[in-house]
Computed example of a mutant assay.
Amino acid sequence: MRLLAALDFGLTHESVVATARALAPALGLEAHLVHVIPDPYFQGLAHRFPDLAPLLREALDRVEARVREALGATGLKARVLRGLPAFAVGGEAARAKLVVLGQTGDDPLERLARGGLARYLLHRGEAPVLLVPPERPLTAVRRIGVGLDESDASLAAFRLALSWKEALGAEVLGLHLVSGEGGCCYPTYLDPKGLSLAEVLEKAEAFLRARYTPLDRLLVTKGEDEADLVELARREKLDLLVLGSKAKRTWRRRLGGTVEAALQRTDLPLLVVPEATVW
């Protein structure tokens, strides 16, 4: 099985390559790099202006040769494709065990605007997607945090985190938020009406410890917004945050509120695990 790392030679290029080089052997995968040259625009120009066709063809051939040379210098297997990046990488991702992408942007709006490829793959839900920021390649994993609730998506994320724990020698920390009624994380497995916050937290911890075992540590805390989980992950100095994505949702809420919040806010490496994942 292979780890697929999609590269665009942007801010995250080195981070993605370093992550692929470190993670693939540790997880028993073969690293494959892929870069897509988006040529449909140039094909359209050549069709509209036939006199440009030879020049455009020559330019694209030179670009492809230079990209192949750069990827070959990494010492990892690599492919250069032409086409629409989302579709080309999506086809490759269907045959991968893990996909690694760069996560760029300094503010939530920029992250949202520049995350087209990541969102496309996340919504397809065919493979776990690991997003790494420019300055934080995932080369050493000591502490893995996994968001837990009562869902099957959360269970898939937890099982993957346990597998990575064994392979990487890491600690797994369970994270769970409890909100009041109407908040982000109202516990459907409890009836908190008439219970104090302390009682709800105690019962939630007991429920999660019974459902998710073995856990190195479990943090159950109050939170009224999905972004509170990201702040909790920062405070715990995690190397990696793992979240499950739900398959049976509307398109707008396909990934779940916590994943959406993490995509826009976290500066940690983020691993999004589809509900149907079996690692």
Results as ranks from 00 to 15, higher is better:
R82W: 03
G83T: 10
G83Y: 02
L84D: 09
P85L: 02
A88H: 03
V89H: 04
V89Q: 02
G90C: 06
E92N: 00
E92I: 09
A96D: 07
V99R: 00
L101A: 02
T104M: 02
D107I: 01
D107F: 13
D107S: 11
L109H: 12
E110Y: 01
L112D: 10
A113F: 14
R114F: 04
G115Y: 07
G115Q: 10
G115M: 05
L117Q: 00
L117T: 12
R119G: 15
R119I: 15
Y120V: 06
L122M: 08
H123W: 06
R124Q: 15
R124I: 03
R124M: 10
G125D: 10
G125E: 09
E126F: 06
E126D: 14
E126Q: 08
A127Q: 13
L130I: 05
L130Q: 05
P133C: 03
P134E: 13
P134M: 04
E135C: 02
R136M: 04
P137A: 06
L138N: 01
L138G: 09
T139F: 02
T139N: 01
V141I: 13
R142T: 15
R142E: 15
R142F: 12
R143M: 09
R143T: 14
I144T: 09
G145I: 05
G145Y: 03
V146G: 11
L148Q: 08
E150Y: 10
E150K: 00
S151F: 02
D152G: 03
